[in-house]
Amino acid sequence: MKLRLPSASALRDPRSWVIVGLVVVGLALVIWALLPSDSPVRKVVGTDTDEAPSAEEKVPDTPDKGPDEILVPSLKIKAPLIPIELETDGVLTPPADTDVVGWWDGSAEPGSGKGQTVVTGHTVSTGGGVMNELPKLDIGSVVQVRDEGKVYDYRTTGVFKLSKEEVADASQNLFGQQGGHGRLVLVTCTDYHDGEYDSNIIVWAEPIKGGGGRSDDA
């Protein structure tokens, strides 16, 4: 069998280029679809959750707003923080990148001393989400937030598991900005059944005296 190269006339035919275009785009889509979900290519290009808008879509116009990084040494969590917005239906969705944690831009910034700093990250049903280990956090564990070269230290005071209904009922207490006195609130999902998460893990961490905004290199 001999390999036949297309003739010059065939290359001038626009229908040939349509076919070539279809093949190229189709192959690209198939290859991309076959990449593992944790592939950097997949993570950069888009989301692996059905409804979660991409992180890029959620970044507000002021990129400097909000803290930069969260660390939970006891759980070996070290993740970038990016601002996320509250959707109109009251849903707060973490960044689509399951290695990135979202800071709700309607909540207090670290060190403000008022309100609550609300951050949330994904739990992935098969593991690997940035907040998968959050339910194992012990009372007293240290949580740190970096913001513009400063480190804010918090100590864990409560780890709660609440159903989605209970979260909705207590939403003002959990996320409201009228109380809290600078509390850090970490949120992720838990209780995975039949493709759905039935509950949230809520962690409360209070600012440590003297740990509010020390220099990053201290």
Binding site: L29, W32, A33, L35, P36, G90, W104, V124, V187, T188
Partner: peptide, 30 residues
């Protein structure tokens, strides 16, 4: 309307690595 989150959708369903929509579209194009 809501000024605080009433739902935190922080759970991801791990798929098997396939993006079914992209796969179907690609196969249709091919």
């Amino acid at each position: 309307g809501p000024n605080v989150p009433t739902t935190v959708d922080a759970g991801a369903n791990a798929d098997n690595g396939l993006n079914e929509g992209a796969l179907i579209a690609g196969l249709l194009m091919l």
